[in-house]
Amino acid sequence: MNQHFQETILKATGAQSLNRTASIQSLWSGYGEIIRYSLEGSKMKSVVVKHVNLPEGGNHPRGWNTDLSHQRKLKSYKVETEWYKSFANSCDQNCKVPECYALETLGSEVLMVMEDLDELGFAKRLSASVNWKNINACLSWLSNFHATFLHIKPQGLWETGTYWHLNTRPEELEAMDDLPLKNAAAAIDRALTSSPFQTLVHGDAKLANFCFSEDGEKVAAVDFQYVGGGCGMKDLAYFIGSCMSENDCEKYEEQILNTYFEFLKAALNRKQNSTNFIALEHNWRNLYHTAWADFHRFLKGWHPGHWKINSYSERVSREVIKSIAH
């Protein structure tokens, strides 16, 4: 990391020196990395630094090395910077996100200096094995996030959040073999974007982007590159698909929706939001399968052999296509 960025970290944290202690992960397609630095002489023990180094092109694991893909990633880092600058402070402990201490751009590099969630007690990461306590913690986070930003305009963010939305994925749409779903794609997208209850969606709310407390009852979320406007069901469907088997997705669908909307109602009441909750719940419940079909459409063009393509997703998508046709 260049000297200027090191000085930025020291100034932002009040530290006298810093030491690189761990590379947490590389960014998608070789666009940089996320690093933990320990600090000396600061009230903080450590910070997490997202260091983006934008190349001319990327090495995409699925072969989508196009200018469109590159431009989408470039914008995603601008969006994340704007998120931390203008929106993140609205999140309270019910939808915890890391505090951002410094944001800086220098040439083709971007620096984000953030609170270390591990130090705050969110050190647990889950991959495959989740229980209801974990799932409910994430449902609570999502509902509070959606309540916080209900009817807020995504100024400077993605106009339509999520990394898979139709307007940014023409190549994947073109590659689709499933013609009924391909032909319904625009109508599915329209149904989601025309919901009168727009909020901000996280845009990549998979299990891997949630950091859990040791007891698994509280979570914080990271990675806001695809935050933007949308129907909250897009986050919910995507999250459930990231951590449940197809059988459980179907078996517990009603329980998941009931729990999410209980949390959402409580969050809106806490915020004294006067939105007609009955109308919102009716609208969003009806769009849950639509949001599921929307992500399924992306997967079938991007990676037709993906493990998330299953009989539940196929059946849900067929139902949505049928309802749109009528």
Rank of each mutant, 00 (worst) to 15 (best):
K265L: 08
N258K: 12
Q255C: 00
R270Y: 13
F295V: 05
V320Y: 05
W307A: 12
E253F: 01
N310I: 05
R318D: 11
R315K: 13
D294Q: 11
H306G: 06
F263G: 01
E262T: 10
F298A: 06
R285M: 09
A279Y: 04
T259E: 11
T259H: 11
Y288P: 00
A291Y: 04
N286Y: 04
W292P: 00
N273G: 01
A267L: 07
S311I: 08
H296L: 12
L299H: 08
H289E: 12
A293V: 02
W284I: 03
E319P: 01
H306W: 06
N258G: 02
H282G: 10
I256R: 07
N269Y: 09
N269T: 09
L280W: 03
A279V: 04
A267P: 02
S311N: 15
L280M: 11
D294Y: 02
G301H: 05
N273P: 03
E314D: 15
H306I: 02
K271I: 02
S274A: 14
A267Q: 04
L280S: 05
E319A: 11
Q255Y: 01
S311F: 02
E254I: 08
R318F: 04
K308T: 03
E281R: 13
Q272W: 08
S311K: 14
R270E: 14
E250T: 07
I309A: 06
A267F: 03
F261I: 03
Y288H: 14
T259P: 01
Q272Y: 08
H282A: 13
S313K: 07
V320K: 09
Y252I: 01
R315S: 15
S313A: 15
T259Y: 10
H303Y: 12
N258P: 00
V316Q: 10
A267G: 05
E250F: 08
E250A: 14
A266G: 09
E314I: 10
S274G: 07
R270A: 14
E281S: 13
W307H: 13
L268I: 05
D294E: 14
R297C: 08
A267K: 03
S313L: 10
K308Q: 12
H303M: 08
S313I: 00
E314F: 00
A267E: 08
F261C: 05
E262Q: 12
Y260S: 06
Q272N: 15
L287W: 05
F298M: 08
W302Y: 15
E314Q: 13
Y312S: 03
K300L: 11
V320G: 07
S317G: 07
R315H: 11
K308V: 00
L268D: 03
A279K: 15
W292K: 11
A291H: 04
W292H: 13
R270M: 10
Y312F: 13
F295G: 03
L299F: 05
I256C: 06
N276F: 01
N269V: 12
T275W: 02
R270D: 14
T259G: 02
S317D: 08
V320D: 06
R318V: 08
R285E: 07
L257R: 10
R315P: 00
F263P: 00
R297L: 05
F261S: 08
V320M: 09
W307Y: 12
F261A: 09
H296N: 13
L268N: 06
N286V: 00
N310P: 02
N283Q: 14
R318Q: 15
E262M: 04
H289L: 09
V320I: 13
H282L: 09
